[in-house]
Design a protein around this nucleic acid. Sequence first.
DNA 1: GGAGTTAATGAAAAAGTCATAAAAGCCATT
DNA 2: AATGGCTTTTATGACTTTTTCATTAACTCC
Lengths: 238, 238
Amino acid sequence: MTSPRQRILIVDDEAALRKALRTSLSALGFRVEEARSGEEALDVFGARQSDLVLLDINMPGLGGIETCRRLRALDAELGIVMVTVRDTEDDMVRALEAGADDFVTKPYRFRELVARLRAVLRRVKTRGERERVLKEGDLELDLDQRTLKKASVEVHLSPTEFELIAYFFQHRGGPVTHAQLLRAVWGPEYGGELEYLRTYMRMLRKKIEADPARPEYLLTEPWIGYRFGRSMVEEEQD
Amino acid sequence: MTSPRQRILIVDDEAALRKALRTSLSALGFRVEEARSGEEALDVFGARQSDLVLLDINMPGLGGIETCRRLRALDAELGIVMVTVRDTEDDMVRALEAGADDFVTKPYRFRELVARLRAVLRRVKTRGERERVLKEGDLELDLDQRTLKKASVEVHLSPTEFELIAYFFQHRGGPVTHAQLLRAVWGPEYGGELEYLRTYMRMLRKKIEADPARPEYLLTEPWIGYRFGRSMVEEEQD
DNA sequence: GGAGTTAATGAAAAAGTCATAAAAGCCATT
DNA sequence: AATGGCTTTTATGACTTTTTCATTAACTCC
């Protein structure tokens, strides 16, 4: 599998700085895009998503923090590295709270910057890898396309059904309570409407299980809730 | 033995804050789970236990203090760090009284927060280190899977039965009073309903003891309650 | 030994849970 | 206005768990 070049969006109001970074970073094999302001960054990002945004905290107009917040809202898995001016912990905290993954403080060494960019890119899944497909047995859930395949053939799911199975996939292995599921799928104000859940469990089982009466995937955990996954093994990762 | 990542449950009603913390904390290598309310926290925790709960004191519905109290009741060894809004000593005191291990006051520095989390995690035994499979004779209780095995074969227990035997396992050796058991299993408002206890003791003995009439494990301690464990020897530790 | 209590037993009523089925409501599209 | 897909409600039966009740056995204290 050939990995596509990683895309970095530089957001800074100083043209000179952008130019310098573009040169250095593209020399390292990154694909570089630029924006002169927070507003432009949001535009550019909306049009063509990047893997990582390098964002100056100090910009006229829509500030760095606010831009960061909005980018993060747009894409929970985007890598965001902020450039803070001083070493005030305040800026750092605000940056992290706004959803940044990391930051460098100006003045920084280019080496350090690259190290941090690489670290974040490693952690953050890049677009290419990001078509998030989770597998379990002969099931395959694609969170981006919102599709589920069983034995490679697509199973049509309604929105609610999809949310439900997605929650299961993301909590596979462990038991999840009824209330947890209800709140996750129907919203925080739900919790007691067990019937909804039962109805949907039945529909899901009908679609997923070879024999709905003897489920392989969607196991019931009496008096507690359900459990997704065929093994009882206690292991997993994000 | 590879130590599993430590699990932190963030409980806060502000989505932005949760997200920010999730990003920052998982970047530090923690495994992060979220809950939007006290109720949800109890659900999530009930289904899959965390090592530490970071709990906002100020939440609608079941407040932070009450949530803390209940979490503490569920798990005496859980780490709980509360986030109090102002520096009022009142909040701090109430938090500690409710069973919190530590607290940070908003606004806090991220660095400080992490330092406190780490300190509490160091002190509190993490799940990995905790003995989660308890043994006694040929019995084996798994607190995670909520299963009991006798001579390696699983014994099916109802929720109440499980709670009861779990309490015994965790207080093995010593005598436990009727009221203690009732309150632990049925809730604080119980205490006099001896019949419940008797009924359940009978069922447990039926399932566990070779000869229910001459119990090896679940011994009765006349006028006091019961005692779990086969040796009368005066030794043990938690 | 007898009165009074506490514990174990047996059995069954009451309450709750889960799976299933199907009707009713909602909503966008035709 | 009718259709079709999806969601919400309601109903039912099988089954498990919890609670309650009645009876018998065991023990303590006088």
